[in-house]
Each structure stands twice: as C-alpha cells, then as structure tokens.
Nucleic acid binder design. Structure first.
Lengths: 128, 128
DNA sequence: CCCTTATATGAGTCAATGCTTATGCGCTAT
DNA sequence: ATAGCGCATAAGCATTGACTCATATAAGGG
C-alpha cells in the first residue's frame, strides 16, 4: 500500500494527529476516534493495523495495553515527494508577495508608478 | 474528495510530476501515462478531470488542445498537514539536510517576520 | 462540407477497501 | 481458577472508484 493510500483515510489521519504529540494506547486512540467518527473498536484496530503494516506507526506492549507512536519514515517520503512542487508555490507566493507589496506601496505613494507598467494578471481558470 | 485521496492514485501522482515543470497538453500527458501504465485515453482523461475538480490542476484551451498546469493550493494543504510531524522526525535526526534546505527557503520568504509570531496550525479542515 | 485529430463523457463491470458482528487470546485481579 | 478487560482477527457485506468500450463534441485541414 502506498503512503498516500494510507493517508487517504480520514480516520488514519486523525490517528496520526493523535500520535503526533507522543505515545498513546490503542484504547485512548479508540475512544477519541469512536467518539468523532462513530465507528466500532474493531474498525479502529484495523486502521491501527494498516498504520503498523505500512510503517507509519510502531507499537510496544505495556502489560495488556499497546502503546502506539508515529514512525516518521513514510511521512518523510511524502514530504520529499512534495519537494518538487515547492518551487511551484514559491513562485505563486513570491508573485503574491510582490503584488501585495506593490499595492501597499502604491496606497502610500500614489504617484510612484504610472498605470499599465505592472505585471499582467495570470490566466484565469477555465471551464472547457 | 480529500487531497490525500486524489494523491492516492499513482497515475494522478505521475501526471502531477509531469506538470511540475510547466504546462503540458492533455495529449502529451496521455502519451506518457499510456506508455507507463498501459491504460486507455479515457482513463487518463478521467484522472485529469479528478485533478481539475479538486483544484490540483488548471486547464486552458489552445485551439483543440487543452493545456494543463499544476495549481499548488491543495499541495500546500498537504504540506501544512505534514508540518506537525516534522518535529517527530527532527527528533530522529533523519532529514537534517532537508530541514536545513527548507529553513533557508523559509527565512528567505519571511525575512520581515520573526519566527514564532505566526498563527498555530488549526485542526485538519476540509476544502470544498 | 467531410474527415481527422484532440479531448471529454457515459454506461457498465470488477476489484479493493472499510464497515459490522462475532470471536479469540493474553494479561490482571479477585 | 475464573471472570473481565484490552485489543486483535475473521467473515461477510456494501460502497467506492478505476478501468474499458463506445460515443459525443469541437477544432483544423483538405
């Protein structure tokens, strides 16, 4: 199962959020998720299994309890995959920042730049 | 459809990779994906639709061709969701280089805002 | 105009996945 | 020992979603 398939499920994302602050027992996780999603204990257990088997979580025994914690490797994989798109939104952010800065400057110094010299609007989204 | 569901499909991930370098026509994308995954033209078109309808791609007409490009917003959402786990792998000291690179980029983008002054992440939310 | 090219849509099928109920199995405590 | 808790697994069912083939639409070139 690919990392993105694992993260595709809202319950599993919520479980990871709960584990982000540190170890939690299966019971604690189950209580929260049962409450929020209205699903059964076995359902949560099955999600925990998916997280385990795909390397998103490790588990350790504490008496009869199972303590789960985040295992970061696959999340890092996702992060690295996103790497190639950061350029895409950096460009957008830079453009936005430039636009905002220009607007602010123009509001303060009305006459500094004549109209028609700014960047053109990016193409609008289109419905074919 | 949640961003992670969209990214759960390997064909759609591949399409986004192809678009990461800039605009490409539906035909170009289809040719590559057909070759690599052995699926039909309509199948690729349906994936393009999913990307469009979920805000991952924008399309613009060029005669009979459709030129697709990445729309970064939902990828940024994913990136922000990952944010809370970066601490987890910092503790593991696994991705020092990645983190340093990111830190440098963020310092460049936030030169005028000192760290620790931004809002904290809200709980996971859906984008309609 | 007709034919071809480029892309999108519709209907139908099939497999994957997430849920439920029922049950198993190891700890813990009485 | 035995009952009860905590958690996992099994089996069955329903839904979702990705594919195929067939077809629609629209632009461009003779």
């Amino acid at each position: 199962m690919h990392a993105f398939d694992v993260l595709g499920d809202p319950v599993r994302r919520r479980v990871l959020e709960l584990l982000a602050d540190g170890e939690r027992s299966a019971g604690e996780v189950t209580a929260v998720v049962r409450e929020e999603f209205g699903i059964s204990q076995p359902a949560v257990s099955q999600h925990l299994r998916v997280l385990r088997e795909n390397g998103f979580a490790r588990v350790r025994a504490d008496g009869a309890r199972r303590l789960y914690a985040v295992e970061p490797a696959p999340l890092q994989d996702v992060d690295r995959w996103l790497e190639r798109f950061r350029g895409t939104w950096d460009r957008h952010l830079d453009a936005l920042a430039t636009e905002l800065a220009r607007g602010k400057r123009e509001r303060r110094l009305r006459e500094e730049r004549p109209p028609g010299t700014g960047p053109v609007d990016p193409p609008e989204e289109e419905r074919p």
